[in-house]
Simulated scan of single mutants.
Amino acid sequence: MHRSKHLHTYLLSKARQLTDSWYESIDKSKVSGVYSSNDPETVDNLKKQNFEFHQLFCEVFTIEKETFYKRLDDWVLSIAEDKHHLETPTHHIIQEFMRVRNQYLDFVNEFAQKSEDPKSSDLLRIWEDTVIESFDRVILRFMELQNEVVERQLKSQEQIIHELSTPLISLNEDTALVPLIGNIDPERAKLILENTLEQCVQKEISYLFIDLSGVVMIDTMVAHQLFQLVDALELIGVKPILSGLRPEIAQTAVQLGLKFDRLTITSTLAQAITVKSNEHI
């Protein structure tokens, strides 16, 4: 039986010592991130996190494992989401978990040697296995939860990048502008098509200026996708007006057999706005 109220009390009484000795033993020349910080507030928070861990971990010797793991998961998630730990190499974090695990093994051994209970020596191996198993679980959960946090951040960043790469700027209640800048690869062209159509529907756009004067390079596949966008816009009732069409892009479109007869094209965005204004006269 791994439970022992006396061992729990003993370890809990060592919690502050565990935190202080652990932090003092960190070799800052071999770690980075949160463990090498000299900022007093960061250091204090790191010690607080470590101390909270000890208060929770000691419960492994008094409560059901599933209940213990559930309580500890909340702490692990807080570390996985912590800004300073996210900026710390994962192998350094795992290394510190392992060092803390060794602290526990030492104290469990010390408790068994000092205990007057004759069964303590027989239970030592069970207690050690409990510590090792629990730390393995903590390390695994940390890696799982931090990976989930990082994936959420990446998806959020990708969404921001996508929105910035295909900005639809409302000019008035029914007119908008999509200024395209830089190189457009097939993946970005696909995003432009999808996001532009979605935003035109959401904002009830009737006229859309597509300015290509900032596009440096384009290939045949991308040119085809851009003209697919034009066709799709017309299908949802949006009149597209192209401006800044470079000669090389026009040449690529002609080579693809794309038709310009139904499309309004101007040299500059200013001319495109004038054309649209004249249509309303």
Score class of each variant (00 low, 15 high):
K203Q: 15
D219P: 08
K190P: 01
L197A: 05
V238A: 01
L197T: 02
F209D: 07
F227N: 11
C200L: 04
A189S: 12
L191C: 01
T220C: 04
D231I: 06
V216F: 04
A223S: 15
I184V: 14
G237Q: 05
Q199R: 15
G182H: 11
G214R: 10
M217K: 05
V222A: 06
A189D: 08
K190G: 09
L197Q: 01
N195I: 13
D211V: 13
L180H: 02
V222P: 03
L212E: 10
L212H: 09
Q199A: 12
F209E: 06
I205S: 09
D174G: 02
H224S: 14
K190F: 04
V238F: 01
E194Y: 07
L177F: 07
L208H: 04
V222M: 04
D219M: 09
G182S: 11
V201N: 02
E204S: 15
L242A: 06
L235I: 15
V238R: 02
A232M: 09
L226P: 03
P179A: 08
D231P: 00
V230D: 00
N183W: 03
L177W: 03
P240Y: 00
L177S: 01
P240V: 08
A176V: 00
I210Q: 07
D185W: 11
Q202E: 15
R188C: 08
L197V: 11
P186W: 09
V216P: 00
F227L: 10
A189F: 07
D219V: 06
Y207T: 13
